[in-house]
Write a protein that binds this DNA or RNA. Sequence first.
DNA 1: CTGAAAGCGCTTACAG
DNA 2: CTGAAAGCGCTTACAG
Lengths: 346, 346
Amino acid sequence: MSSAGSSRVTMAEVARRCGVSPMTVSYCYNQPDRVAPDTLRRVREVAAELGYRGPDPTARSLRRRHNGAIGVVLGEHLAYAFEDPQARRFLAGVAEVCRERGIGLNLIPTTGEDEDVDRVRSASVDGYIVWTTVDSDPVLPVVTGLHKPVAVHGGPAVPGARLVGIDNRAAARELAARTFGGAHRPTVLSFPFGRDRRSRLETGPDPDHVAFPVTRARLLGVYDHCRKAGLDTCRLPVAVVARNDRDDAAAMADVLLDACDTDAVLAMSDQLAFAVLDSARRRGLHVPNDVAVSGWDDGPDARREGLTTIAQSLLDQGRACALIALGDRGPSGPAAWTASVRASTR
Amino acid sequence: MSSAGSSRVTMAEVARRCGVSPMTVSYCYNQPDRVAPDTLRRVREVAAELGYRGPDPTARSLRRRHNGAIGVVLGEHLAYAFEDPQARRFLAGVAEVCRERGIGLNLIPTTGEDEDVDRVRSASVDGYIVWTTVDSDPVLPVVTGLHKPVAVHGGPAVPGARLVGIDNRAAARELAARTFGGAHRPTVLSFPFGRDRRSRLETGPDPDHVAFPVTRARLLGVYDHCRKAGLDTCRLPVAVVARNDRDDAAAMADVLLDACDTDAVLAMSDQLAFAVLDSARRRGLHVPNDVAVSGWDDGPDARREGLTTIAQSLLDQGRACALIALGDRGPSGPAAWTASVRASTR
DNA sequence: CTGAAAGCGCTTACAG
DNA sequence: CTGAAAGCGCTTACAG
């Protein structure tokens, strides 16, 4: 029965009304066993009467010196994080651990501007997870300088943070071998190179110009294969999309199929691969005979569409990051991956 | 240049080393204009030297009496929230507002157990958003008793919280009219009725037994139409899925098409409608001639598949909830919806 | 432009 | 089983 008025009742107030000391009230909430049953009952009664809802979480955090929450730093467009299947799966893994341990999950959007640093610093969290970002992200040195555990997913690898992710270069090497075998005009449909996110067509781009380490590693893996297979990487068409979205990528998929007349596309995600499949379908092209297509991540739709793709568990990687941010050691070594080979490649 | 050792430097420490008072240091961070340029410079130097990273966010929150964060209470399986297209879109809207206002977004998973209440109470947030839940959710009275602004999405409507959402009953009424017109054996593919999430087939279930108000309202809307059209609601087959997932719903879609021999399915989401389309395709059934199908939410895939569906902006509803949780008035009246009529219905 | 004082609401060894 | 004391790290009127 909470009395209406009292908009902010403190523990001290409850104590006074009960005729006990504040710490006895505190014990009622934190170690009820230590309190005499009668006292406990009285305190609870008075608390209910006064509308006291229990200890203030912020005061408690300050006193205890921990917040019971971890922060997830997400790049540029938080809305995309919810749309992107990989990011979702990853966050689901983080969320699982949070639920198991009863701790909070604080999403920290960043925009690439100066306020990012303040936003990140002013989050009341015990540890951080940084979602894959560019090498020079100013948030990185800030977050690693906070004396709190930090996990970075994907990359970059920085001192003071644990890196979680697969060996993208090795996986790309294998996927290129599966995708480009028997092809004459192989191409790549790539994630953005940097934060500018300009959609465009490049030819044999210099990996050093790629600011996202995950994207760079995948490109390097493709180049590794090309060199081994005697393909000239300088002539390799690489279409860059503005974001990882099936519909948005349609235009660049069309460019690869039309202007480049490609017969094998390695796409850096399942979504991008689907854009190519859509485009091929519109043109009446047969997959894989006219054009081989491969993707990345092996989401549920990949199986449905018979897509060759790199399988990895973003869920597990999310879990690993959460454990690290919580101060655990987490798993050692890179995450696992396999190639799921299906009918979309020769 | 941060010195390595010092694992926790306080403002008081910086002040001492600078030979100024703590509040001068505080002003350097909060109102730098009020501080003499020389003092400001010195304080910054010493702070950098000592590895002081600025005011502790928790202490600042306690002192300022606000946290700069809102909490989003999500039901049962947080992982599902990231997989569910509606929830994602909604969260994206919430996130947009958070980014614009520079405030944190705290995800609070609940499990339906007793600890939920503590978890919700102990989040350091200034306001709450509750994602659609059951009438009797124990979190509801707790969250509305905290003297902080609360927005509930979908339902239930409770005193002390603002409700955001569309008129589900009216929308369902119209959708039923579009879907069931010309059909002889109409059926419904429904969200779970309660937290038990048992998948099953019911016949003319009593809406009062549906614990989720959103689901109940949609069922009531369907019944409204049936009565007007002279259909016997007591015989209406309603297949209930365990969760809103295309693949998971396959079994119940099959049941409707096989055991019920239905020629019109109103599904409560696009995902469930796709499960019916998948099932119809496997059987070589023509849509809409053999079976009319409709969904709900009008996501990007709905247009691609030519699905008749209820269009609403979960993004805008997410934004509205965020504004309310931040203490704004938010929009008044129910949210907007329209019927997107396409080729999947007659 | 800077400081002394009070206090945000709570918890934790430590006595008794 | 309960209390006096100290303090978590900071900010805010208020003087000067």
